[in-house]
């Protein structure tokens, strides 16, 4: 008998693609997608069950279908679609995780739990070490927003792992996921024509490609390959680092440095207009940056990302179209200037 996999939050792009990817695994018999709203994208041969993970119904789903692998993807920073409140998202993140874990605890067939988390759990503060390892305690815990949801959700997951030691629990902390169809707040930020930045700070950013995120989730959701261990907490990020100034130049978008208090106001204004989610934690990330160590990902999880941070960003930049100052035309201007200079008659 093959495995039965349950994926939450399938109305989102990434989870939908994960479902289609899991279906290709010959050892998997059934894939069940769960979300409160019906997905607009096709789920391949997977079954879709409309259920809200914040309610007890999820326990019945788990018991009736005999699920053995649960992939919890419904931990998100933004509401689905354009409307939806932050409160609902927070409830899904925290209460949904609690309910789902409670249901898993009652389901004896569950053997494996994979949780999509974020490197946001480390926060972003000037007094933190430059590179976070999985065991680095954050100097200042995130005070609110998505990062706090993730910290709380991870806390419940740790509690679950203690109560059900027979279940393999894998928490994947993803750096900022970018890709051609990413809809994260950071992707929205990079789509602004002029990028507001914090004056005097140049944060280090790390990205992970959607493909790599899916590949890592697949490794975590299947039986461990020989010599690797896929339970535990892992940072998932592409190699290398880009500075915010570098990303703006590569995108060809001018930056608008603002004083830190002004940025907070501007963020509130932009949020009110609904242009982008400029939450305080987002501003902190764009002030102090965040870089994680990925040694565990390579050595224990046995996962090698295909895209580096720079390659991920290049792909993302291609999908967004040229900005106001395309790097190609800047380079051409400099080259033309160089030609003019070298064409001067030699003295």
């Amino acid at each position: 008998m093959g495995r039965v996999v349950l994926v939450t939050g399938v109305a989102r792009q990434l989870a939908g693609r994960l479902v289609r990817r899991i279906l290709r695994d010959p050892s998997v018999e059934r894939v069940i997608g769960v979300d409160a709203v019906a997905p607009v994208h096709p789920l391949g041969g997977a079954e879709f069950l409309q259920a809200d993970i914040r309610h007890l119904a999820i326990a019945r789903v788990l018991a009736e279908t005999g699920v053995d692998t649960v992939v919890h993807m419904d931990v998100n920073s933004t509401p689905p679609g354009r409307r939806g409140s932050r409160t609902a998202v927070k409830e899904t993140n925290v209460i949904g995780t609690m309910q789902l874990l409670g249901a898993c605890q009652k389901a004896p067939r569950v053997q494996r739990l994979v949780v999509k988390s974020s490197t946001g759990v480390y926060g972003s503060a000037p007094r933190d070490p430059a590179v976070f390892g999985e065991d680095t305690p954050p100097k200042s815990l995130p005070s609110g927003g998505f990062a706090k949801d993730v910290v709380e959700a991870e806390g419940y997951v740790r509690g679950f792992a203690r109560r059900r030691p027979d279940v393999a629990v894998c928490v994947l902390r993803f750096a900022n996921v970018l890709g051609p169809c990413a809809d994260s707040p950071l992707a929205e930020y990079f789509s602004l024509p002029v990028l507001p930045t914090v004056l005097g700070y140049d944060p280090r950013l790390q990205f992970v490609h959607e493909e790599d995120a899916l590949a890592a989730l697949l490794i975590a959701a299947s039986a461990p390959r020989p010599g690797t261990l896929n339970s535990g907490t892992f940072n998932i990020a592409g190699d290398g680092v880009l500075l915010l100034s570098q990303t703006a130049r590569r995108l060809g978008r001018p930056t608008l440095p603002l004083l830190l208090p002004t940025v907070t106001w501007a963020g509130a204004a932009l949020r009110a207009v609904g242009v982008t989610d400029f939450s305080p934690e987002q501003i902190r990330l764009l002030t102090h940056g965040r870089v994680v160590r990925t040694t565990q990902m390579r050595e224990t999880l046995g996962f090698e990302p295909r895209y580096t941070t720079a390659e991920t960003f290049a792909e993302f930049a291609r999908s967004r179209g040229p900005g106001l100052l395309p790097p190609e035309s800047l380079a051409r201007t400099v080259d033309r200037f160089a030609d003019v200079l070298s064409a001067r008659p030699a003295q």
Binding site: A130, V241, L243, G289, E328, A338, L341
Partner: peptide, 28 residues
């Protein structure tokens, strides 16, 4: 002077297009 100018322009080109590397600690 010409070589230095050319070098300077190459540097300017890399800086303007963002095609340079920094390490994990942000060292440029």
């Amino acid at each position: 002077l010409d070589e230095r100018l050319a070098g300077g322009l190459r540097f300017l080109r890399r800086r303007l297009t963002g095609e340079y590397e920094v390490d994990d600690f942000g060292y440029d």
